[in-house]
């Protein structure tokens, strides 16, 4: 809870809350609905809806048939996983040009996202949306996840997923508030600057181990407040502000004459 409280004021907190709410809604819907809204079971009707959505929201940049333009890449063969990642994290549709598309409150609900994913998946074979089983961190091995994360992810996303800088204003986002499903999809599809970690490189089980490692971070630190888990720079800053601040405050009190 401590870790959660510390992040409550994060600028992405509203986004996360919204995401959570949507995920819960979506989850309830998925549980109650007769057939899950998944790409592999997509109906022709879904694809049709998806196509309409695509043409209204995405075609300006990605081309009327998702063939890509000078503005944006072709989406033929990117698969449902890529669409689900981009749209469910709010990165797509993009609102303004910047160094990279940033996560924001999602603009399409679970159903629309599924339809869009189904449409793009129908254009060419690509990675499918992972199953709930595949992204369930509680079934993974956090120790192995740690070893994999360290070698493959930590250089951009920081040792425990606090995020980090890339060149020219781009950045690797923090991962604590990212759902297991989105983490999995990101590895599978390599959104934007991120390279692809396909199943030959990091197997589905290993991907789940990485999610398990990230889940482990929700417990915070054994040593108390995490201070953002940013490493020595933030530690040094706090040493000066809290440590030297309190101690000099004490010295001023000691040196002041009693009235």
């Amino acid at each position: 809870m401590k870790a959660l409280a510390a992040r409550r004021h994060h600028r992405l907190a509203p986004v996360v809350l919204l995401l959570l709410a949507l995920l819960v809604t979506g989850g309830v819907y998925a549980a109650l609905a007769p057939s899950p809204a998944q790409a592999d079971t997509a109906s022709t009707a879904d694809i049709e809806t998806g196509k309409k959505l695509f043409q209204a929201n995405c075609a300006t940049c990605h081309g009327p048939n998702a063939e890509g333009t000078t503005e944006a890449p072709s989406l033929v063969g990117v698969g449902a996983a890529a669409v689900d990642f981009q749209v469910s994290t709010g990165r797509m549709p993009m609102q303004m040009n910047g160094p990279q598309a940033e996560a924001k409150p999602r603009q399409m609900d679970e159903e629309q996202t599924a339809a869009l994913a189904a449409y793009v998946a129908s254009l060419g074979a690509g990675p499918a949306i992972p199953t709930d089983e595949q992204v369930d961190g509680s079934k993974g091995d956090p120790a192995n996840g740690m070893a994999l994360f360290r070698t493959n992810c930590a250089m951009c996303h920081n040792a425990v997923g606090a995020g980090g800088a890339l060149s020219e204003g781009k950045f690797a986002p923090p991962l604590w508030d990212t759902s297991g499903r989105n983490v999995y999809q990101a590895m599978l599809t390599g959104p934007q600057s991120m390279p692809v970690f396909n199943d030959a490189n990091i197997t589905p089980d290993e991907k789940r181990d990485i999610i398990a490692f990230l889940d482990e971070q929700d417990q915070g630190s054994a040593g108390g407040l995490t201070l953002g888990s940013l490493g020595p720079v933030s530690e040094g800053l706090w040493a000066w502000i809290i440590g030297i601040g309190l101690i000099i405050g004490g010295a001023v009190w000691i040196g002041a004459k009693s009235s």
Binding site: R150, G163, S221, G223, L227, S229, E235
Partner: peptide, 19 residues
């Protein structure tokens, strides 16, 4: 206040590095 939680970084290995 947690400081230098080395298990976050893991044991030394010449390949990894963290942001």
């Amino acid at each position: 206040m947690a400081i230098n939680n080395v298990w976050n970084y893991g044991p030394y290995d010449p390949s990894p590095v963290s942001a």
